[in-house]
Simulated scan of single mutants.
Amino acid sequence: MIETGISELDKQLGGGIKKGSNIMMIGPPMSRKEVILNHIMYHGAAKNKNAVITVNTYETGAGILEWFRENKLILPLSRIGIVDCITRMIGVEADDDDNIKIANHPVDLTGIGIRISQFLEEYSMRKNVRKIQLCVNSLSALLLYSNIRIVYKFLHVYTRRIKAAGGLGIYVLESGIHDMQSIATLNHLFDGVMEIKSENGKNFIRVIGLSPKPTLWLEYEIDGAKVMIT
Results as ranks from 00 to 15, higher is better:
Gly16Pro: 02
Val172Tyr: 06
Gly44Met: 11
Asn71Val: 07
Lys11Phe: 12
Leu186Tyr: 00
His156Ala: 12
Thr60Phe: 07
Asp95Val: 10
Asp10Trp: 02
Val35Thr: 14
Ala141Gln: 12
Glu221Cys: 11
Leu144Pro: 00
Ile90Asp: 01
Ile36Pro: 03
Tyr42Arg: 10
Lys11Thr: 15
Glu70Lys: 11
Leu173Gly: 02
Leu75Ile: 09
Leu75Arg: 05
Ile100Asn: 00
Met180Asn: 09
Asn128Arg: 11
Gly166Ile: 02
Ile17Ala: 10
Ile162Gln: 00
Gly201His: 09
Gly192Pro: 04
Pro28Trp: 02
Lys226Trp: 07
Phe119Ala: 11
Lys202Thr: 03
Leu218His: 06
Ile26Asn: 03
Ile112Lys: 00
Ile40Cys: 08
Leu120Val: 08
Lys33Trp: 00
Gly224Pro: 01
His178Arg: 04
Leu189Ser: 00
Met1Val: 14
Glu219His: 08
Asn128Ala: 11
Ile148Ala: 03
Arg32Tyr: 12
Gly91Lys: 01
Met1Thr: 11
Lys33Glu: 01
Ser198Tyr: 05
Lys49Gly: 01
Ile86Cys: 01
Ile162Cys: 04
Leu134Asp: 02
Gly111Arg: 08
Glu66Ala: 13
Ile150Ser: 05
Phe190Leu: 07
Asp97Cys: 03
Ile23Cys: 07
Gly111Ala: 06
Asp179Gln: 10
Ile36His: 04
Ser31Gln: 06
Gly169Gln: 07
Ile102Trp: 06
Ile64Thr: 10
Tyr145Asn: 01
Thr159Ser: 00
Ile100Arg: 00
Glu8His: 14
Ile36Ser: 02
Val136Ser: 05
Arg149Ala: 10
Ser175Thr: 09
Pro29Met: 02
Cys85Thr: 13
Asp97Val: 06
Ala165Arg: 14
Leu77Thr: 11
Arg130Lys: 15
Leu144Trp: 07
Asn71Gly: 08
His188Gln: 12
Asn71Gln: 13
Ile170Thr: 03
Arg115Tyr: 01
Ile205Cys: 04
Lys11Pro: 05
